[in-house]
Simulated scan of single mutants.
Amino acid sequence: MTGAKEEVAMQARRDHTLKVIKGAKPGVPGRASRRRVFPRQLPASMAPIEDLLERLDREPVEDPAEVDDPAEFEDPAGGDDPASVDGPPQGAGDAPAGRRRLLVGLLVAVLAATLAAAGTTGHRWYVHQATDQARQAALAAAKQASVNFVSVSAASVDRDTQRITAGATGDFKEEFVRGQSQVRTAVVENKVDSRGSVLRAGLVSGDRRRAVVLVAVDATVKNVKAPEGRLSHYRIQLDLVRDQDSGRWLVSRLQFVG
């Protein structure tokens, strides 16, 4: 009987060879799971075998050949929360991103308003400067035209009348050209020699295209009746227009006002 029991026990030891199956760590991309088999001899008693199986199920032995860097697959915090691996919970960064977008939008709006205001201010400044320059040019042209009109000499009458015509336009030019021959005759026959100078001038109205100017002129006039010359005082109103092609201010109307 004892011999039969010993034979059964030996047969049990031969049949109960433990096969420990260890799988590759789950979750490694691109790496197929492999299993390695490690044969281990079971103790004679069945109770230790059950305890060993239970322990191995809880704590599987890892094969170092399966993992290049064990730290690469470990959770530094020691937790199993997927959020700690995959990143912050969805929507966690929405609030800062929203504030950044709002800030950028406000900056763009402020910049656009600033540029618009600067553009408007710049345009107004340009118009003001251009208008002021046009008025000053009109005033200077009116002064010169007044001097030209009262400065005529028998010795240079053709050149003097031509200078007046060159600075005229419109009705005034047409009237002066029509009476130019008569003016020349009167100047030559009376041996006129007149020289004028501007005392004062003022802009009545004006913009970049039209202007009205008053000019006070003194002129010393010599002729056959006053060979020594006499002083004459004139007040002349001139209407001027700016020629679109040349940009020059031309007299369209001239009249004595006192």
Rank of each mutant, 00 (worst) to 15 (best):
S205I: 04
L199Q: 13
G30Q: 07
V204H: 05
V221E: 02
Y234E: 06
G23V: 04
A154E: 03
V8G: 10
G258P: 06
G98P: 07
R253L: 06
R235A: 08
G229C: 06
T121Q: 08
L238H: 03
H128K: 06
P89C: 03
Y234D: 05
V147G: 02
A137F: 04
L238N: 01
G87I: 07
A109Q: 10
Q129T: 14
V241P: 06
G87V: 12
T185W: 01
P39F: 14
L106P: 11
V183P: 00
Q180N: 09
G98V: 08
M1T: 13
R35Y: 09
P82W: 11
E54C: 10
P60Y: 07
P96I: 03
N223M: 00
Q11F: 12
W125E: 10
V213L: 04
F172Q: 00
E62I: 15
D75T: 10
T169H: 09
A117I: 14
P64D: 10
S197Q: 13
K22P: 03
P70H: 08
D207H: 05
R200Y: 09
E228T: 14
G122F: 07
A226Q: 14
R253D: 11
L107C: 15
V147R: 02
P88K: 02
A134G: 08
V257Q: 05
L103R: 08
T220F: 11
A168N: 04
V67E: 06
D207N: 15
E6I: 10
S246I: 09
V241D: 09
E72C: 08
A95M: 04
T169W: 02
P64I: 05
A216S: 05
P96T: 07
T185K: 06
L231S: 10
A4T: 08
S252T: 15
V251H: 03
A154V: 02
R36A: 15
V241G: 07
D51Q: 15
E174P: 01
